[in-house]
Design a protein around this nucleic acid. Structure first.
Lengths: 240, 240
DNA sequence: CGGACCATTGATAATTGTCAAAATTCGTGG
DNA sequence: CCACGAATTTTGACAATTATCAATGGTCCG
């Protein structure tokens, strides 16, 4: 068991809570209370954590691993909305009304989650109004990201979007190296395509182009090396 | 002055508050307190209500008229994120941190707004935790709409997106008629194009096509008649 | 009535999607 | 550790769609 550094007897719970920014405002004794109402779950790669249309009665916190949130069209086309990783959470929308999940979430790797029932989450907020504000903050951040994503889809060309995605992944899943940044991609080519709203063949071609231009190098299907960060930012429209 | 039906002396304020669902949970005496901290503003068509990048220190409630929220790329391409109308509000994201506005808002018609300073909004939430939950609900709804919009951009073809937009507008701004639904468009062709992330010429062409097919009829630049609701829904992918 | 603004139409070019086939990678079990 | 089969990715050829540019036509308002 991993040492949590608090000498408590709820280490695994505490670890989970400490990873989530919305609980930062609370002190240890409050956290211990919350820890006791947490339910732990594990999922294998490819397993479904929640399913669009199902009743969603809990808030789920990512404790380990990463997952994708997506929707299907009736014709079977998948649109990925988010890639969640450690510390992210979902299910907090529609906290009062027990509505149906608006997207599905699937484990991209082995995943551990912590769950809190919505009913209990609500009383937490009544008890600690500051947590309500924290959640509003967090939702606000998510909205801003979503708004940016929408703008991206609307006005940026495909090259810019792919480059931007690589840079995002580099921030979240990259490690520096003397040759550049090694990025472990959480999504397959098809996943990236479904995230960007383009065909998977187009992803292949565009990545191939970036490789020809010496900007990136594919190490294997799951990782690439960013050799020329600057150029990538220029293509992404983040630098001039 | 319009009669508000409460025999109070803050009618115009009360009207404003009564239009906003998040205040539904409060009783009259609470509402009166809130009414006293509201600031009223009016804008002409084309005026900017908030500007992306400016400090955003208040929550703005639409009281009359409609407005568009949009972002510009450095190259000057506009992406419209929302069309706000009566009862909608914005600026509630980033309630704690006084961050910069992430989008601009411009009046599409003469607009009246009610503003509450963020600092005061925060203490409202501390005082009425239920309001925090209401806002979380509202943000959740907005997120769902945004997620749907993102999916739309990603996987639906242009015909489906235009048809879907017309149906949305019909819901919000349409009135039934024996010949069909007359829709008063809040956006120009260019506006619709910037909302859907396509060229304005494409909007013209697609609307022309719908007219040729007898599904709609353009009455003038600002209003259309939906003659065949069913077909429109089929094209939008909402019906089979 | 005139002028500014907005919308439509046409021709063409650029981009991306689609389908099919080949190549590569990955995981498993021997 | 290697080899095999399945899954994924890449590549090529072609078709479809939409953007762009330019010119024309229409509408609204003073």
């Amino acid at each position: 068991m991993i040492e949590c550094g608090h000498g408590c007897n709820h280490c695994s719970d505490q670890l989970c809570l400490h990873k989530v920014p919305i609980f930062n405002a609370l002190d240890e004794s409050d956290l211990e209370k919350i820890a006791s109402i947490i339910i732990h779950r594990e999922y294998k790669k490819g397993e479904t954590i929640i399913m669009e249309g199902e009743k969603s009665e809990s808030v789920v916190i990512m404790h380990e691993g990463s997952s994708k949130a997506y929707k299907y069209t009736p014709e079977g086309r998948e649109q990925i909305l988010y890639v969640f990783s450690e510390g992210d959470f979902f299910g907090e929308t529609n906290l009062l009304r027990n509505q149906l999940a608006t997207f599905s979430v699937e484990a991209l790797q082995p995943v551990k989650t912590c769950m809190i029932m919505k009913s209990q989450f609500q009383s937490l907020i009544q008890q600690y109004p500051i947590m309500g504000i924290k959640i509003i903050e967090d939702l606000g951040d998510r909205m801003v990201r979503l708004e940016n994503a929408l703008q991206s889809m609307g006005v940026r060309n495909v090259d810019a979007r792919i480059s931007g995605l690589l840079l995002d992944f580099a921030n979240k899943y990259g490690s520096n190296d003397k040759k550049g940044t090694v990025v472990h991609l959480p999504l397959s080519r098809e996943g990236m395509a479904n995230y960007l709203g383009i065909a998977r063949e187009t992803v292949s071609r565009k990545l191939g182009q970036l490789e020809n231009d010496g900007i990136i190098q594919t190490l294997n299907n799951k990782s690439i090396l960013i050799k020329d960060d600057e150029s990538l930012k220029v293509i992404a429209g983040e630098l001039y």
